[in-house]
Write a protein that binds this DNA or RNA. Sequence first.
DNA 1: AAGCATGTGTCCATGCTTTGTCAATAGATA
DNA 2: TATCTATTGACAAAGCATGGACACATGCTT
Lengths: 327, 327
Amino acid sequence: MHKYLDITWTGFSLVGMEDHITASAARHPMRVVIQRTGLSPDVLRAWERRYDAVQPDRSGGGQRLYSDADIERLGLLKRVTAGGHNISQVASLPVEELRALIQQETLPPAGPASDAESERLRSDLQHAWDAVERFAMGDLEATLRRAAMRVHLSSLIEDLIAPLLARVGERWHAGTLSTAHEHAATAAIRSVLGWVNESAVSRNGAPLAVVATPQGQRHEIGAMLSAAVAASEGWRLLYLGADLPAADIARAALTVGARAVVLSIVYPADDPQLVPELSRLRHLLPELVSLLVGGAAADACAPQLLAAGAEVLPSLPALRLRLGALA
Amino acid sequence: MHKYLDITWTGFSLVGMEDHITASAARHPMRVVIQRTGLSPDVLRAWERRYDAVQPDRSGGGQRLYSDADIERLGLLKRVTAGGHNISQVASLPVEELRALIQQETLPPAGPASDAESERLRSDLQHAWDAVERFAMGDLEATLRRAAMRVHLSSLIEDLIAPLLARVGERWHAGTLSTAHEHAATAAIRSVLGWVNESAVSRNGAPLAVVATPQGQRHEIGAMLSAAVAASEGWRLLYLGADLPAADIARAALTVGARAVVLSIVYPADDPQLVPELSRLRHLLPELVSLLVGGAAADACAPQLLAAGAEVLPSLPALRLRLGALA
DNA sequence: AAGCATGTGTCCATGCTTTGTCAATAGATA
DNA sequence: TATCTATTGACAAAGCATGGACACATGCTT
């Protein structure tokens, strides 16, 4: 593990000074830098050759020997370029400038360096969760919006927002998170989803979906997610929110000429009113209008829902696919 | 060397958002600008080519390199054009004027609106109402946003949104408007209010208000309006939504160090739980934290509310004044 | 009502930039 | 000797520049 130190000292005329040399003066060969920064050897050499990103010492034989400051600098450069900056533009900036750039970056603060997008989303999720616990809704919104700019809406919803909501709901049920936390998180997510939907373009002649929650279902969040998915698939939207009687939904769908009605069912899962209500809705809608039902509780009563004439979409990706096919 | 830039990405719930970030002398390539402004590359280039919106530096190879000021300017332009202004007419405005446009400082906020302006608002109200009846939520949002760019937020809320909501509620009670209409209108207004609040600047040390609806009160819209009023008075916000027990509200207020708790009471007006719940909340909150109660039904039980230790604000202007005095 | 002008977001085709990666050859290290 | 590392030169994918064109909505004119 620490073998490389020996190598280091053999190169230059430092033999015998080991005792006086502090860790910060140590010199590390390339493999250490690779391991600590995650950069490839080729990239390391290219950055040095083409942009003078660092000027490491050399061993007697000419091999690179990096200082701790070099390693830190390279780590910063990796972060900054991952945020979209050209290496050619930032390679010569002083360390403080690099730090300032990172502060502006759309990346979540801190966290171990990792290049995988999913790793970044995991870090976002953790950050978002911390924000919810602290009632730091500004942080939460900022994190979600940054992620929204970075990844596709489907990924935002399915890999970040949905897991976050699941975690919030879980802790809420367990009693370790207050209703206030849950409401605040919902409001912030609603704000972000609304903002995202604004940027979703929909052609003028795009098909229109009515999104709502049937009577008795008071949890709106599933409908919000469904709406976002529909928008990202290019549908125009009429968003009606939660807890609506079948007659109202049908009338709205007819008024605007919807091609699909998307419902979300979360809780309660065993509402006896649910199936008759959906059956009524199905009969009020024209044959051509699809009735899509999703949400955490939809799976449980899938047979009855199918019997009532609805399609059951057990997951958001499934809903996305179905909407894509219908469009 | 280091300047401070204002951030306008303050959303509907703002607690914990960093108020300032440091600017750097670095130049940013196009993809960073895309990320941070949400503009498309084509729009970016078109705005530069056709309207000289910004004049970025160029790299050795001719690629655009934007400054922090450029990015800020582009963000403002996006915001202003979303409000209905033509890009061709605002592209050359200095940043201060853009900011002024966003903060609706172009028109004097207070006082009796001019005849022309109030006439305009009346027409907007009619237009908005038509849109609600037709489920044309896109039209509704566009109308509200255009108005928001023209008049002060107080006027937008008190002369347009509140009357519209009153009319919707009235027709809904009378049975001439479906619940779906009411829900759809609420969703659209919520979206516009969130959008408007993004531009409400809150100073760094601004006082913080928790906005919610007490347990049993399921109508969220009054809380949304109260939140918008508070934001327009420069308060930071923690928005908790509807139907929360006193203990939760108190805990949230304590966690974030709120200086006021704003509650909205609309329906039912005769909930026997209401007064004890508010009394409980009053006792859970520190003396220094004001408890402000507004909403259509607050007037009816004003004596009991006062006895429970709450302040009753019978109208949105009254709430605005009180919040202004508290800040 | 139909037609025309204008504004604006988007798309395309072609060519240049940027940058990560690789190959070949040679030297260093353990 | 086996494994790293250095150097140079080259390549290719992704991104960007540019001018032009198109689509679509709005609003004005006939």
